[in-house]
Design a protein around this nucleic acid. Structure first.
Lengths: 337, 337
DNA sequence: TTGTAAGCGTTATCAA
DNA sequence: TTGATAACGCTTACAA
């Protein structure tokens, strides 16, 4: 079928082979209905025979739109982007847009930043996944939405998980299980702060209803990592040995918490319950079975994609901020006390 | 600095602003030394002032090469690609190539497969990460290398982990620790098979030296998942209660094995040692601390990138297959018996 | 060292 | 329903 040893076929080759003009081929490519069945068949056959593929470079240069959306991830190691992408695919790709994905470092050296690269590609819009870099600059006129991430970017819509609600849920779950002395372990991040705030609000609600619930928080001046969970939890339990439930700012921190609890000869959940945030695959694994707050990344992706489409259609829209309600996923690390 | 409310600036705009011809601007863009300092400065200033970015579409259409490499991942969920990308970046990106990443499903619907999309972009080469789809077709003339993955693709170089060596290492490690009754748990995959084969060879070596070592394998007709590890290990220990060390085909399967071992009231590593494969972040986490075989994805990436460059330079090169020697990473799940 | 002009492979605008 | 022909934004001989 294909020889492929030489230059790729062009629209001219196809036209010649099918015995029509290039414009006709272009019309067929664009699925125009104003083409006779006969010619269409001839063109399609020629395309097959020549193994022809339109050059995206030529298409986007000649056309009025690139039909391309750039997605900037903070780090490929943060698995939450996988679900986010699923949601983005649904809302964007299925509408005929091509998704191009890069993490913060992918093409540095060639481009200053992935955003620069996307702008060179003349993307129609940008999705910034996670917390946008503080010194990120996107030219006015480029539609942008921030997906997950609290910091506002000028002129950008935001679709994010409701960390406050998630924090409240975590507290509520533990209170329901009968815990009265709660602990929080987090670090230096906007998400951690918001989750802590929600958790405190949740405790206040319970206390208001008459439950004798109190909470103590350890917030380290460090990134929200597993190691933070380890040292934070040790400090928490050193200072407050009566704590029976720990809410960690995210799942890897929760893993650290479990590790610290094991260090101390305590068991999860018999002695101490642990709850994380993000509902990552690690949490869902049978071995770990971590109770977690699902931030519903798929829905964030869907929402972000939908919003981006709206903004592309009408760039004058006022910016909005939508919060997606998280969901508690109870597993084996939390138990009644 | 930037207004950005209208169309992006073109090379014409820059030329006009700097008072030179477009060719001169093009030369500056390409860092040609044959440009007077005066003009260069003027052009650079104009670029700044207009917030100009060359259109990649126009560049690759007009130029002779796209300077772009397509990377096809099997699945964004398999974290091993993160290290692979790091290696590819080093060898490719630093040589002035742009990396574009897609997983198997990223733009299906628009393109038939990510490979189709890459061919439309006129990439200069392709990296297929992981086991290539059996019905994957790449036109002759397109340089391809398979990175990680045993199945040979026609006309493609291969750079992969030496699974046989890794299997041998796993067996060797356990024998050294004094284990004599070894178990293997795997599933339906080429990697699993090769690792099993290496493990058997390792046992044979030990037995040859006079050690009284034997091994029993459970290979399920299922994917190599955590669940496979659970049921495989249960079966293994049901049938062979004297096994004191389990080698799992990969880390998530090892997680399943640990889960099953816990189900039975046994402890890791006191009662049963467990070793995985891939050295994923989960294995490296403090909480899990899984002994594993590091497949050295970074080096696979480096090698694959380097080889791709060679093949692009000289497409007539005979195809090669290079194996990267894995490395044992001992952690808490294996112990002397 | 700089400018002119001819492509690159499409889409888009008109005519026919 | 089809076909010329002019863009699109850049690179690249070729001249000057």
């Amino acid at each position: 079928m294909t020889m492929g040893n030489t230059k790729p076929a062009t629209i001219y080759d196809v036209a010649a082979r099918a015995g029509v003009s290039k414009s006709l081929v272009s019309l067929v490519l664009q699925r125009s209905p104003r083409v006779s069945e006969q010619r269409r068949a001839a063109v399609l056959a020629a395309i097959q025979e020549l193994d022809y593929r339109p050059s995206t470079a030529a298409v986007s240069l000649a056309g009025t739109r690139s039909r391309t959306i750039g997605v900037v991830l903070d780090d490929f190691r943060n698995q939450w982007f996988v679900d986010l992408l699923t949601g983005l695919r649904e809302s964007l790709q299925d509408q005929g847009h091509r998704l191009v994905v890069a993490d913060r470092f992918l093409n540095t050296g060639l481009d200053v930043s992935p955003v620069e690269g996307f702008l060179s590609m003349r993307v129609e819009g940008l999705v910034i996944a996670g917390e946008p870099d503080p010194d990120l600059v996107v030219p006015a006129g480029t539609p942008v939405v921030v997906a997950g991430g609290r910091a506002a970017l000028p002129r950008a819509d935001t679709v994010a998980n409701d960390d406050l609600a998630g924090g409240r849920m975590a507290a509520g779950h533990l209170v329901e299980l009968g815990h009265v002395r709660l602990g929080f372990v987090g670090g230096r991040s906007a998400a951690s702060d918001a989750r802590l705030e929600g958790w405190r609000a949740g405790i206040d609600v319970a206390a208001g209803v008459g439950d004798d619930v109190t909470g103590v928080a350890v917030v380290l001046a460090a990134d929200v990592t597993e190691e933070t969970g380890v040292s934070g939890t040790h400090r928490l339990l050193d200072e407050h040995p009566d704590v029976t439930a720990v809410f960690a700012a995210n799942d890897v921190t929760a893993l650290g918490a479990m590790s610290a609890i094991a260090d101390r000869g305590l068991r999860v959940p018999e002695d101490v319950s642990v709850i994380g945030y993000d509902d990552t695959p690690i949490a869902a694994s049978r071995y770990v079975g971590l109770t977690s707050i699902d931030d519903r990344s798929i829905d964030i992706g869907r929402g972000a994609g939908a919003r981006l489409l709206e903004r592309i259609a009408d760039p004058t829209l006022p910016t909005t901020e939508v919060l997606v309600e998280p969901r508690l996923v109870a597993r084996r690390t939390t138990a009644r006390r």
